[in-house]
Design a binder for these strands. Structure first.
Lengths: 359, 359
DNA sequence: TTTAGCACTCACTGCTTTTGAGTGCTAAAA
DNA sequence: TTTTAGCACTCAAAAGCAGTGAGTGCTAAA
């Protein structure tokens, strides 16, 4: 279908762009007359009508009903996004806003992502999303233990990404001492450093238990925790902000549309999948039913992965009606992600993990 | 106003209850005839009309317009909730469901709360909220450090609640060694154990720096982190689930109502305040504009704090239309919170903190 | 004090009419 | 061959309007 794009005359492109722009702005179907008045084109409304009819035949436009104006089709939006857009230049004002607000929230990546999604939402006036993808190729880096009381200790595990995970443990081993837990840490470090979840095999566990002697019970506790931490904790997560903004767009005044979209946002899996399937590091634009997510028929999702050292740490994006101000959205996400990546790169103190109990 | 409640005759109470019940069920204004047919009362519709007129004078009922039926007022709901309700007994089925699902999610309190809010939402069919209040009286329990590379280490802090917080640090101290960071941990433990954020004074910091000798730079890094961790990390948080459920109730088909409510849910502060202001450990029911949150005019919020050893660890609740099935909601929250508190008490392994990097 | 009866109110429904934005087509102009 | 002007046609949406009925308040009788 992209071969057809070449076939568009310059004037057709102009008209298509004009229609998309006008429809993004007003939300209503646009007619030939309106275009004639508001955009400069050296031809009459009749010509425009003819062109519009052809564009409709080619699949770029749709007509809600016979006597209404035209509305861009999915293909129309796609063409617009891919080739017609003039990247929206962010004002210095907006850049300053981004910096100020991101700095205020600096800290863990998670908070940055959340803040960025909030910003994206408020700057574009659509709904923002922050995504932390599932990371599954993590291996263990280092262990430490902290002795608390004769039946409590804390196990701290650092993974290969230098993320810290810790868990408060209770044990029934008779007399737990500072030495026991220190020994546990030594043993765990000795045998498990560099292993991923799959590589933790029974022989290894048995060797560790042997080394721990009478306190071998600690090992199985620890293993369980390590396993959980490697597998579960970093399952993908997604946060949504600015849902209320959706309501200002007439396309969601139809309750069933809104309900469907909100349901998808609640479930999260669909969108998480969509985002994690995208391989490239660039901005992705998913318009309507291009994706398998049926529910998004009337909506569009734009997202940008946050990448550091070739690793995808997360993504930010916005969701809104199909007639989205793509230029602005693209520029905003681009700007935000650039800022985030800069922050991550420039300030090493931030790039590891921070964590706090029970969060 | 509760003195007036006493003045209600038994029949008035019955009629009021009948009206609230009917309105909760159907959502429509209820008329005298409907009550006569569907609830057993030994009187005619005319009598009911008279009583209804009086109840309206007394402020328990409202009339949307002259020829419509009656709708319970805020006061009416309040009276209903306070005195008429027959606590909804949860079916064993539902209890089993709670247990199964909570167990699956067991782990940190945060996840439990979130799972509980999801459950509350799906069981009651309203929107669920999970709240972790601001904790500000935390002091430092213990420190540990983990050496990674000559310019990286991880600082682990355990607070008085045995929550673990950790942060990945980068340092410029010339040659960072395993010993340096171990020494840092010893010094921090020596001087700061038991202190709260306010108690960290300059003399203490200077003593620690003196003890660290040439590596005194590490101290100021650590202090900054500790300070941040104590203050920031446990700021209140609130998660919302099941927003889409709101849409099935006709009171939110008015977009402005919905928008207002969603806005409040987004902002979070209002609700967080509301919840943290409530002192008692029981279920609270906030109906409409009883609270200062203007936006909730048409809605009701029911929440139950989760308490352990006299400390409020969080809260779960639901938000929905004012005509909420209070009996069911109260029973569900009661049941859920009981389960959560049991889990926390019975399984020491869970009650500490778990944390994972970057979450 | 309760009930039956009755006039009254008013949102809602379904119907027709009007309006007007927008089209497609044809024939003239470029 | 392409563009334009003109005109008839379409059809959703708005406006107007009568009829319906659930529900009320009030009065007078039980």
């Amino acid at each position: 279908m992209s071969s057809e794009n070449r076939g568009l005359t310059e004037r057709k492109k102009q008209i298509l762009k004009a229609i998309v722009d006008a429809h993004i702005e007003g939300g209503e179907p646009v007619g030939s007359k309106y275009i004639l008045q508001n955009r400069q084109l050296n031809c009459s409304s009749a010509t425009i009508r003819n062109e519009m009819a052809e564009l409709e035949d080619m699949g770029y436009l749709e007509q809600p009903h016979a006597s209404a104006g035209r509305v861009p089709s999915e293909l129309g939006y796609r063409f617009y996004v891919d080739s017609l857009i003039e990247r929206y230049a962010m004002t210095t004002n907006e850049i300053a806003q981004i910096n100020a607000l991101l700095k205020a929230k600096m800290g863990e990546l998670d908070q940055i992502l959340l803040a960025a999604s909030n910003l994206a939402s408020s700057m574009t006036n659509y709904t923002g999303i922050a995504i932390k993808p599932k990371i599954n190729s993590v291996s263990i880096g280092k262990f430490d233990t902290i002795f608390l009381e004769p039946d409590h200790y804390i196990l701290v595990a650092v993974d290969s990404e230098n993320n810290v995970k810790s868990k408060h443990l209770h044990t029934d081993v008779p007399i737990l001492t500072q030495n026991s837990v220190a020994k546990l840490a030594r043993v765990l470090n000795l045998y498990m450093t560099g292993l991923s979840a799959e590589q933790i095999t029974l022989p290894i566990i048995m060797k560790m238990e042997a080394d721990m002697g009478s306190e071998s019970a600690l090992v199985s506790d620890a293993i369980k925790v390590v396993y959980d931490l490697l597998n579960e904790s970093d399952s993908g997560e997604m946060r949504v902000s600015g849902i209320d903004r959706l309501l200002q767009y007439p396309e969601y005044s139809d309750v069933s549309q809104l309900q469907a979209l909100l349901g998808t946002l609640e479930k999260k899996e669909d969108i998480l999948n969509l985002v994690s399937q995208s391989e490239n590091e660039d901005i992705s634009v998913v318009i309507g039913s291009e994706s398998q997510v049926k529910v998004m028929n009337n909506s569009a999702l734009v997202f940008k992965p946050i990448v550091k050292d070739g690793k995808t740490l997360g993504a930010i994006g916005v969701i809104g009606p199909r007639r989205m101000d793509y230029a602005k959205v693209l520029a905003t996400l681009e700007g935000l992600s650039g800022n985030i990546e800069n922050m991550i790169h420039s300030n090493k103190q931030l790039n590891g993990g921070e964590s706090d109990g029970g969060k």
